[in-house]
Design a protein around this nucleic acid. Sequence first.
DNA 1: CCACAATTCCCCACTTTCCCCCACATATTG
DNA 2: CAATATGTGGGGGAAAGTGGGGAATTGTGG
Lengths: 152, 152
Amino acid sequence: MHFRGINNIAVDAKGRMAMPARYRERLLESCGGRLVVTVDQDHCLLVYPLPEWEIIEEKLISLPSLNKQSRLLQRLLIGHATDLEMDGQGRILLPAMLREYAGLKKKAVLIGQGKKLEIWDEETWVQSQEEWVAAVQADEGDLPASLEDLSL
Amino acid sequence: MHFRGINNIAVDAKGRMAMPARYRERLLESCGGRLVVTVDQDHCLLVYPLPEWEIIEEKLISLPSLNKQSRLLQRLLIGHATDLEMDGQGRILLPAMLREYAGLKKKAVLIGQGKKLEIWDEETWVQSQEEWVAAVQADEGDLPASLEDLSL
DNA sequence: CCACAATTCCCCACTTTCCCCCACATATTG
DNA sequence: CAATATGTGGGGGAAAGTGGGGAATTGTGG
């Protein structure tokens, strides 16, 4: 049961966005509509069903506290993780701070990414997409091991 | 039952800060509102429910006394640990010395970090955050083993 | 032991934010 | 084209956050 596909979405003046109808039923039965949003290093937001998030959070919390990289990740990811519930109309309210982080304006894009969803500002999304296509073509020689034998 | 998420909080002239409503009930039932504050090496404050703190304290006390790093950690953490209780309005009073250590002014940020909460001066938090986002992207090649195969 | 100062705590009042509900606009389906 | 479902916007009440006055407590110095 994975999320996939892309949706155009409006963010209203109060910071709310409507979850696409085709996800709602799934979200209600898989986690009672209980979601967690957090930030991503690429300046978009990540949305997890609560149970999925808890697995990740557990891993993060167990990281060594004296390691700088670990603390950094913990603060970014757990620090920004916010519990959300859908309202009566199937919408979620994105906290102002997270909207700012992702540069969200009126038009946003919601992208299914397996266990999670990503929320991008539309403009940022379009720009990044162009960069990636260029980057993938340029960097072909320099892949980590796990990508070397990936077959699409 | 972990703490997560971020809150903007005002510290008033008396050094008080209001615990966000969504944490209060949990704090009351899990530890009767009994908290411990101490300092962190990154110049923020750490807040633990008393039972959680006692576990940490036990670990710290057991560290080898002849190791310089150990003594340093013990003095920093145990030395600054202060018992707190929420008042009738769900606020805690931060001791002046700890406020100074963290450079707390009027605007602060409260961050859930699993078993503990962190309190940052807003300005410090914003600055550090920018540095981290940059650092995460720059240092991708140099991660500790436990982070190598982390999948978000 | 007393007086004074500083700090802490409790209470009240104000401001802001959030959340529930209703209403309309747009899209989809029969 | 009607009828239903989905997306979008906003008003108003409730709750949370914020600030300050004054009483009670603690601590200090005489």
